[in-house]
Write a protein that binds this DNA or RNA. Structure first.
Lengths: 292, 292
DNA sequence: CCGTGTGAAGCAATTCACAGCG
DNA sequence: CGCTGTGAATTGCTTCACACGG
């Protein structure tokens, strides 16, 4: 999942839990699909199945919004669509800017899911002068120099950052200074922002890493004796390295660990892996995009 | 954040909390940056700041992996990089396939962050015959017909779905049947998968909707009297509609709510919004991509 | 009688605060 | 003395189970 940042601690009485807020768009999507099929009502059970959650959770979530269902019947689809849209603030128009029009930025600009939810791409911004004026998704790309003016003229409060990691912090500062208070960050960096500014981040490689973790577990369950042994050796070697940490240079240590950890046949591959991890370019994992 | 699906309930003793797993890649990124700057050690305080979390949480997280720090000193950067990489399973090579080579799929194929973390794009797959053979990010796109063969020949366990929503479920079934057990889903649909298969989803428009929710709250705080009144009216109108729900058609109801909700000046805009929400195309929010 | 709405119980994650070790 | 590692306290989320109302 993309990850988020906690907001203020539920300002007052009508505080909807963050976890619930994160699921509302899911319900909305399921409801919209039902609405298109002209389904008049749904039970919590049905809707929950469509949204991929369990029904108790769904009912609890809706209870924070109010009593919008009918006992013995279920929920009125159209009515719920309206209520959730309103709660999410989708009954108004949100102009957004996308900064960094590389592969990813362009994909985002072309993404139909924004427009259909009340998000209007007000401008595309890139630091590359060669990009300026080029149309992407039917909108002419503008140069970073115009950033402040664009934000202010369009009353933009939400910005999307799809620049390389190195540019992201600076871009966020300019966005915020110009009036943006919510940022969706695709650059693989932690943004430092003042209080009152919300940042949500989406990091593609983080999601894959989490999957790899679970995948590894699965593999471990049907582990061959060999693999188990290899792992035990690695563990032991690792401990060893740690124990002597004080006397060795960091570099030597890591190498020693990698070498000791992987016996015979597996060695070549594991070593290669370790090296390529090290070789990663500076701030290298950029989702795409423009030269800062 | 992108959202995930819970896994099995911590199979045995060494169960690392899911929340911790989700942060490990973050720590790894911060540590890699330090490593590149040849920083030998970090304190939990420093590393936490770099990763954007608080230090108590970080220490607790690391405590699940083992005692890898040195009291009074901090953590050895290289050593921790190695331990976390190993825990995440990044010391091995993970071939992945990307299905759906539209704007988003192409952006993912070009994304440098995968390769640098041990993920190797083994194949790009698209249903459009016209795409077959075309090189994207230096790899020739293959046709969906080849899907099973590709998965099996390359021993792929992780698949990325970047198709339109309508194609996603079917693609996931084929991937799973061929041996994939972890899926990163960019299509705006809930995938139905058997036990033992992990799905993580990234939905761009969901992230924006969550931001919009908070953004709306911020606006509400500096609310003008007018806005507050308008909202109260909307609330009352909504209740009213609900009360008479039984006698009205769903469609009439929603319209009534929208009309009653928004007095005078604000009306035009709000009505427009409601309409456009309704007008959304069927399965319309596709991140990009190939015709199924 | 069926499905919502919700207190209460159960879990999981976060934060606190400090003992213990280098 | 400083910083890690961790029990204990706390907060927040999920799940259970059933009373209540249409």
């Amino acid at each position: 999942m993309a990850t988020g940042r906690t907001h203020r601690p539920a300002t007052r009485s009508r505080g909807i839990p963050e976890a619930t807020v994160a699921r509302l768009p899911l319900y909305l999507r399921a409801l919209t699909a039902l609405s298109e099929r002209s389904v008049p009502t749904v039970s919590s059970e049905e809707l929950a199945a469509a949204a991929g959650v369990n029904s108790a959770k769904l009912r609890k979530d809706f209870s924070y919004l109010g009593s919008y269902g009918t006992r013995g019947v279920g929920y009125d689809v159209e009515y719920l669509v309206y209520q959730i849209s309103r709660e999410l603030g989708l009954t108004q128009d949100w102009p957004v800017v996308i900064v960094g029009i590389g592969n990813l930025g362009a994909a985002l600009a072309n993404y139909g899911g924004f427009a259909s939810r009340g998000f209007r791409v007000a401008a595309l911004i890139d630091a590359d002068p060669a990009m300026a004026g080029k149309p992407v998704a039917g909108i002419a790309v503008q140069h970073t120099d115009e950033l402040e003016k664009i934000i202010e003229d369009n009353g933009v409060h939400i910005g999307v950052i799809a620049t390389p990691a190195g540019a992201a912090q600076q871009v966020s500062e300019r966005l915020i200074a110009a009036g943006v208070t919510s940022i969706l960050n695709f650059a693989p960096t932690v943004l430092q922002v003042p209080d009152g500014v919300d940042v949500r981040k989406v990091d593609l490689s983080i999601e894959l890493q989490i999957l790899a973790f679970h995948e590894q577990r699965k593999a471990g369950e049907e582990a061959t004796a060999e693999a188990v042994v290899a792992d035990a050796v690695a563990e032991a070697a690792a401990k060893d390295v740690k124990d002597t940490a004080a006397e060795q240079s960091a570099e030597a240590k890591r190498t020693a660990a990698a070498e000791a950890a992987v016996p015979s046949a597996a060695r070549a591959e594991a070593t290669a892996r370790t090296e390529s991890t090290d070789r990663k370019g500076p701030d290298g994992d950029v989702p795409a995009v423009m030269p800062a």
